[in-house]
Amino acid sequence: MNYLAHLFLSPDDPELLLGSLIADFTRGRLETLARDWSPGVMRGIALHRQVDRFTDDHPRVIRARRRIAAPYRRYSGIILDILFDHFLSRYWAEFTRRDRGEFIRDVYRLLEQRREQLPARLHALVPRMRREDWLGSYRELEVVGLVFERMATRLRQPNELGGALVEVRRHYPELAEDFRYFFPELIEFVQRQQEQTDRQ
């Protein structure tokens, strides 16, 4: 799951929303991180990790990864993370009545308001994230291809990730079907996790 999906899955609470993003910019045990972050942010970080585990282990996601052929398969996790944000944008109305543009604007506003509390790397990224509309622009498949190219330059070893859009296009209908099957189950999982947390 990438940024938009994690934010979408997070309960509508500023602390949990921040935690869902901060999780990608933190490492270490939850007990250690709890020294630096509020309980609400920690719930968001913990939920982010639960979502990632559920996603990685889901049979339909495993099937989707297997659709990606060499030389791209070794990057299938990265490819699907980005692509799932694309599919969420495309099929947004299947999962919520909330306006996508309004949701994204609210997130950018929250990040600006709480920017000084963010980890240094995320703090530095916020202006670019907003300027380039990272949360909204993935709806266009051509932008997804540009993201693959940008990420390829950040990997240490020479790689084929920059050309992965060709492989995505080859399997686009099947990958979209995988996402539309899997994502409602992920939503239900998150709801169960939150109900369990609320009872504690």
Rank of each mutant, 00 (worst) to 15 (best):
I104Q: 12
L83M: 08
G136C: 01
Q50V: 02
H123E: 08
R43Y: 07
M42D: 07
L165C: 03
R169K: 14
F179Q: 06
T96P: 05
R192H: 14
P119A: 10
G136I: 02
R100D: 12
L175Y: 03
L125T: 00
Q113N: 15
G77Y: 07
S20M: 02
P184E: 09
E132A: 13
E174R: 10
F183Y: 12
L161Y: 00
I79A: 05
D13P: 11
F103P: 09
Y75K: 01
R97G: 15
F148A: 00
R156Q: 10
R192V: 08
Y172L: 06
G101H: 15
R114H: 13
L118V: 04
R130A: 05
Y138G: 00
E15Q: 15
L175F: 09
L175H: 04
T96E: 09
L21T: 03
R114L: 07
E188F: 06
Q113E: 15
I79H: 07
P39F: 02
D198L: 09
E177L: 13
I78S: 00
H6P: 07
R65A: 11
E102P: 04
R115K: 11
I187G: 02
F103S: 10
D52T: 02
F84T: 06
F95N: 01
P173M: 06
P158Q: 05
L146N: 09
F148T: 01
R67F: 14
L186E: 03
T55R: 00
E112Y: 08
M1G: 02
R121A: 07
E177V: 10
D99N: 15
Y3S: 14
R35G: 12
V107M: 15
V190L: 04
F179V: 01
E195A: 15
L47N: 02
W92Y: 12
E177F: 07
R43F: 04
R131W: 07
L30R: 09
L21M: 13
D178N: 11
L110M: 09
Q200M: 11
D36F: 13
E185H: 06
S76G: 10
H86L: 04
R150A: 14
L125R: 01
D133L: 02
Y181F: 12
T32C: 10
F183E: 05
Y181Q: 08
M42G: 11
S89T: 09
Q194C: 09
R67K: 11
R90T: 12
R67E: 13
A120D: 13
R74D: 05
A46N: 08
L30T: 10
L17W: 10
R66N: 15
F189H: 00
L4F: 06
A124Q: 08
Y75S: 13
F25Y: 14
M151D: 04
E188D: 12
S137V: 05
M151I: 07
V143E: 04
